[in-house]
């Protein structure tokens, strides 16, 4: 039971952060290796607001999302959009994103150092839940994640811009042919994707130590979730994130903890071999 709770918590975080990775992957046709470092960046901004400026965590949460989204918009305007104009190849974009990941991570190390840190919040006792312990932080993570996913669902299925985001992730050329201002929709996709990643990053800081490499190490499970859910399918990604989170945690019952991340790699490899289009084609 404890493992299931832990799995749901980490699964919610993977799901939340991986949605943006998935949508950008499909829409712009490249893997953004810097995505994980945006997650870490958000956790550090929350840390800054919470610890150094002494604000409460809710404020820190909002500030972190705004700062991360702002950074993402700047990068889109200065890097990705000009690169699209020049018809940069997928490989070029991937290499740029790896470079961006390194820059971001080293800025975090430069400013905050490589040590692990944590938010300044009171430590509260966990509740007994069917023989397992669930901490208030874990409850906060799950509830916030599901609330944000619900908002995302509303955005994607009910609003015009949300439908356009799905349309672009389906077929950018056809969207352009239909007269849709694709640059505008892509910018919105970054905002939503990185906003969710930032939220996931702040929440991740609640249940794990904050360190510069936290996002980078989350990248592999995120990829696994994206591939499991079918690239570009946000609902599949959510389901994929949950599956990866749960299987990572449940694996610790039989395998040493160090092998946790290998589980997502194995799941990803199996899916790529057997059903490369993802196994959640039906959740749309």
């Amino acid at each position: 039971m404890q493992l299931i709770i832990n799995g749901l918590v980490i699964g919610s975080i993977i799901a939340l952060t991986a949605i943006g990775l998935s949508m950008i992957y499909k829409t712009l046709n490249f893997v953004n290796f810097a995505h994980g470092d945006f997650v870490a960046f958000a956790a550090y901004i929350a840390l800054l607001t919470n610890v150094a400026l002494g604000m409460n965590l809710a404020v820190a949460f909002a500030v972190a999302i705004l700062a991360t989204v702002a950074l993402g918009v700047v990068v889109e305007k200065l890097v990705w959009m000009p690169m699209r104009r020049k018809n940069a190849t997928q490989t070029t974009l991937i290499i740029i994103s790896i470079g961006l990941a390194l820059v971001l991570r080293n800025i975090l190390i430069f400013v905050w150092g490589g040590d692990t840190q944590s938010y300044n919040i009171p430590v509260r006792r966990g509740f007994d839940f069917f023989g397992a312990v669930i901490t208030p932080n874990q409850i906060l993570v799950i509830v916030t994640a599901f609330f944000l996913m619900f908002l995302l669902h509303h955005l994607l299925s009910r609003t015009k811009i949300g439908k356009a985001m799905r349309a672009l992730s389906d077929n950018v050329d056809l969207a352009r042919i239909s007269g849709i201002d694709t640059d505008r929709v892509i910018l919105r996709t970054w905002v939503i994707g990185l906003g969710l990643a930032a939220a996931g990053g702040v929440l991740y800081g609640l249940v794990t130590a904050i360190r510069p490499s936290m996002g980078w190490f989350l990248l592999l499970p995120m990829f696994a979730a994206v591939i499991l859910g079918g690239i570009g399918n946000p609902y599949g990604t959510i389901a994929g994130g949950m599956v990866i989170g749960l299987s990572q945690e449940l694996s610790t019952a039989v395998l040493p903890t160090e092998y946790k991340f290998a589980v997502s790699f194995i799941v990803m490899t199996i899916v790529l071999l057997i059903k490369p289009e993802g196994i959640f084609g039906w959740v749309r």
Partner: peptide, 15 residues
Amino acid sequence: KEFFPSLTVLENLEM
């Protein structure tokens, strides 16, 4: 590829 496969028929027309 003259349609958006993951969108419903109505959503395609809306696009």
